[in-house]
Amino acid sequence: MSKQITTITFFKYASLSDKAWGFGMMQFANKDLRQIKGLTFYRLMGSGKGRGFNPMPDWSVYCLLQVWESEAAAETFFNSSDLIKQYNNHTQELFTLYMKNISASGTWVGKNPFEKTADLDLNLPIAIITRATIKWNWLYKFWKYVPTSEEGLDGNEGLIYTKGVGEVPIIQMATFSLWKDFESVKQFAYKSKQHQEAIKKTRKYEWYSEELFSRFQPYKSTGTWEGNDLLSL
């Protein structure tokens, strides 16, 4: 089985100058990221206000998704990279989650970057990343329906954390969610009327020109987010 792993890193900036630096790194970090050994795919993403989908940007939170040939390649980057040192110098919090890939369907910029590297353990935390490019002619209806589709997340005890992120505001959106176990995901997916209705509308109106749904088994974390190690909650 493949040794590939995926990491997702969240950066939180506090001061105005650091927020400006973080925004600039959405462009300037690409030069370094393209040269990292063992990195097969990456995406720098901004985020929306609050925890779910929101078209209004959150200038204090950014995200870096990376797919690695092996955990050793990821460790080398996070332990010795000058780029990560720069991020550490400018962030209030930096949190990285290491994940094994369980399954992925669909494409992200024309390909599926995730190879299966583990079978699902029902009793361990599970992370889900969804990503979609929204068709121009459906933007208004999509964003109008988003608040309704997210109602099932409110007060969900099985949900540890979720954040709406994306490469291009409004058009290319993704969600990251971390759950206590697979049963929590099932409860939301199959018992949330809002979620079921969102799936029906997506299929009926074909909102997306490209979409991907992926599941991961988190197994290690570094740093804190909102003062906590999310993997230990």
Rank of each mutant, 00 (worst) to 15 (best):
L120K: 03
T91W: 13
F176I: 00
M45Y: 05
F10P: 10
T222K: 14
T117S: 15
F142M: 04
M56D: 08
S192K: 03
N88A: 06
S184R: 04
R131P: 10
Q66R: 12
F216S: 00
N137G: 06
S177A: 08
S80R: 12
K37C: 02
Q66S: 02
G46I: 07
R215C: 04
K200W: 11
K191C: 14
L65V: 06
Q27R: 15
S192N: 08
A20L: 15
S81M: 09
Y62G: 11
Y208P: 11
F10T: 12
A20P: 12
I128D: 09
I171Y: 14
K85Q: 11
K141W: 09
F176K: 03
A104H: 12
S192V: 09
S2P: 07
L122S: 13
P57W: 09
T175W: 14
K186W: 07
F176T: 01
A198C: 03
E93G: 13
A72C: 05
T175E: 11
L94D: 01
V109R: 15
Y42I: 03
F41V: 03
Q217A: 09
L33E: 00
D18S: 14
L139Q: 00
Y13K: 06
G38K: 09
E150G: 09
Y62N: 11
V168E: 06
H90N: 08
D58W: 10
F41Q: 05
I134Y: 12
V67G: 07
K180F: 03
S105W: 14
P55A: 07
G155S: 01
L212H: 08
D32Y: 11
G38W: 03
N156Y: 06
G38V: 01
E183Y: 13
S149K: 09
N88K: 15
A73R: 12
L233R: 12
G24H: 00
P125N: 10
T202R: 15
Q35K: 11
A73V: 01
F41Y: 08
K111G: 10
V168Q: 14
L124R: 15
M1S: 13
Y161C: 08
N30V: 07
L33N: 02
L65P: 02
Q217Y: 10
M25K: 15
E69K: 14
K19L: 07
T148S: 04
G24Q: 08
M1V: 05
